Amino acid sequence: MTAPRPEPARLVVLVSGSGTNLQALIDAAADPAYGAQVVAVGADRHDIEGLRRAERRGIPTFVERVGDHPDRAAWDEALTRAVEAHRPDLVVLAGFMKLAGPAFLARFGGRTVNTHPALSPSFPGMRGPQDALEYGVRITGATLFVVDAGVDTGPIVAQVAVPVEDDDDVEALHERIKTSERAMLVEWVGKMAREDFTIDGRRIRFQPKDQS
C-alpha cells in the first residue's frame, strides 16, 4: 500500500514589485511533487504586479504599508499578525524591500528566507551587482539565506555562481543573476518544504522527513 503524500508546506510570500520570483514559486507549486503551496501573498504597497499575479491564481493577498502605522515597530507587529493568520510553514521574501523587525523574527525566525544578488558575505545591501562589477570580480552570483536581524547576513542555505562577462553593464549582469537566483530559490524552497532542516550556528542541515 502506498503511503499517503504528506500535506504540502504552507508558503507565505512577501513582495514589493513585479513578483517574478513569486510567479516561479506559484508555477513550481502546481506540481504536487514540489511539496509546497503558496497560501498567501503579502506586500508593503498596493497596486503592484506581484499582488495581481496572486489574485489571478485565486491566492489570498494582504497589504501592510509602513505609512499606515504610527511607527516601524507597529508596522512590524501588524505584518507579523497578517502573516501569522495564514499559518505558514515557511515565509519567503521575494523582492520584499523591507527589513524584518524584532516581532517578525521572534515569530518566524529560522523559517524565513530571502535572496541576495551576490555571493554573501561579499557585497551586501542594495547594490550587489553594481558593487561586484565595480570591484572587478570575475564571478558573482546569488545567495539564499535564512533571515536574521542583519542586512543579508543570515545563515546561507544555497548559493549559485554567475560569471562576469567582459562587456557586462550592471543591468545585463543583474538580469543574468536574477535568472539563476530564481532557479535556486525554487529548488531550495522546495527542498526546505519536503525535508526537515535545522540551523546549527551558520550551517543548515537537511534530512528526510520521518514518514512513519
Rank of each mutant, 00 (worst) to 15 (best):
I156V: 15
R194H: 07
L90M: 11
R65W: 01
V92N: 14
L79A: 08
G110W: 00
A3H: 07
S180A: 14
V160G: 08
A43H: 07
V12Y: 07
R127P: 03
H86C: 11
G50F: 01
R81I: 03
V189G: 09
V92D: 12
R182G: 12
T198M: 06
V91W: 01
D148V: 03
R5H: 07
Q211T: 11
G95I: 03
L144C: 14
V146H: 03
L144M: 15
D196P: 02
F108H: 13
I48A: 12
A103H: 15
F62M: 10
I139W: 03
G101H: 11
V91R: 09
D27T: 15
R194E: 04
E134C: 08
D167N: 11
P121V: 04
S16K: 10
G17S: 10
R57D: 13
S120Y: 04
V162A: 13
I139H: 05
M126Q: 10
D210C: 06
F62G: 09
E7T: 10
K191V: 09
A149Q: 11
E77D: 13
E171N: 07
E175Q: 15
V38I: 04
Q37R: 15
A30R: 14
V151D: 00
M192C: 05
R138C: 06
S18H: 13
T153I: 06
R194Q: 10
L51C: 14
E165A: 13
R56S: 13
K98F: 02
R107L: 01
V12K: 14
A142L: 09
V15D: 03
Q130P: 01
M126S: 14
T115Y: 06
T2M: 14
D31V: 05
D168T: 06
H174Y: 04
G50D: 02
I139S: 08
G101M: 10
I156R: 12
S180Q: 15
R10D: 04
R45W: 00
F206G: 08
P102Y: 02
A74K: 10
L51W: 01
L119A: 12
K209F: 01
Y34R: 12
A74V: 06
D166Y: 01
D167W: 02
E84Y: 00
V170A: 12
A9S: 13
P208Y: 04
T198W: 00
R194K: 07
L79F: 01
V113W: 01
A73L: 11
R72A: 08
R111W: 02
R138E: 09
M126G: 09
V113C: 09
A103M: 04
P6Y: 04
A85Y: 07
E49A: 14
L105P: 02
V170L: 06
I177S: 14
F104W: 10
L133H: 07
V15T: 04
D148M: 06
V113R: 12
A73I: 03
R53I: 02
G19P: 12
R52C: 08
T140V: 08
G141V: 05
V189L: 06
V66I: 12
G67K: 14
P32L: 11
E84C: 07
G42A: 07
E171Y: 04
S18P: 01
T61P: 03
A40S: 09
V162T: 13
R202Y: 02
V170Y: 04
